[in-house]
Amino acid sequence: MKQKFQISGISCGGCVARVKKTLENHPNIEKAEIFLAPKGATIITMNETLSVEDIQKQLDELNGYTISKINQ
């Protein structure tokens, strides 16, 4: 299942690569698509639904990134 998020702190391709790799290390995240336009827009494909808090815990391995859900 795909869900849309916004990740603040994304500013370049290096950020995208680091955050993508960190998110995809989570066992329940199949794929993370992160965009620079609009900056930090993210689509995460999951095997089972994760809360924003669960995903933030994974992101906390890196400093300076905050995730929030985009209501569709």
Results as ranks from 00 to 15, higher is better:
2 K>L: 03
2 K>T: 14
4 K>C: 06
4 K>M: 14
4 K>D: 07
7 I>C: 08
8 S>Y: 03
9 G>F: 09
11 S>T: 13
11 S>P: 02
12 C>G: 10
12 C>W: 05
13 G>T: 09
14 G>F: 11
14 G>T: 06
16 V>K: 04
16 V>E: 01
17 A>K: 15
18 R>L: 10
18 R>E: 09
18 R>V: 07
19 V>S: 01
20 K>W: 02
20 K>A: 03
21 K>N: 15
22 T>M: 03
25 N>M: 05
25 N>C: 06
26 H>E: 06
26 H>K: 07
27 P>L: 08
28 N>K: 12
29 I>T: 00
29 I>W: 00
30 E>V: 13
32 A>G: 02
32 A>F: 00
32 A>K: 00
34 I>G: 00
35 F>C: 10
35 F>S: 14
36 L>E: 04
37 A>R: 13
38 P>Q: 12
39 K>R: 09
39 K>F: 04
40 G>D: 07
41 A>F: 10
41 A>Q: 09
42 T>I: 08
42 T>P: 10
42 T>W: 02
43 I>C: 03
44 I>Q: 02
45 T>Q: 15
45 T>L: 11
46 M>V: 11
48 E>L: 03
48 E>Q: 14
48 E>T: 12
49 T>F: 06
50 L>G: 02
50 L>N: 03
50 L>Q: 13
51 S>Q: 05
51 S>L: 07
51 S>E: 05
51 S>R: 09
53 E>G: 04
55 I>T: 02
55 I>N: 00
56 Q>G: 10
56 Q>H: 08
59 L>Q: 03
59 L>D: 03
59 L>M: 08
59 L>T: 05
61 E>W: 09
63 N>F: 05
63 N>S: 14
64 G>F: 06
64 G>K: 13
64 G>L: 10
66 T>D: 10
66 T>R: 12
66 T>M: 13
67 I>H: 11
67 I>V: 12
67 I>C: 12
68 S>F: 02
68 S>C: 04
68 S>D: 11
69 K>G: 07
70 I>D: 08
71 N>Q: 15
72 Q>P: 13
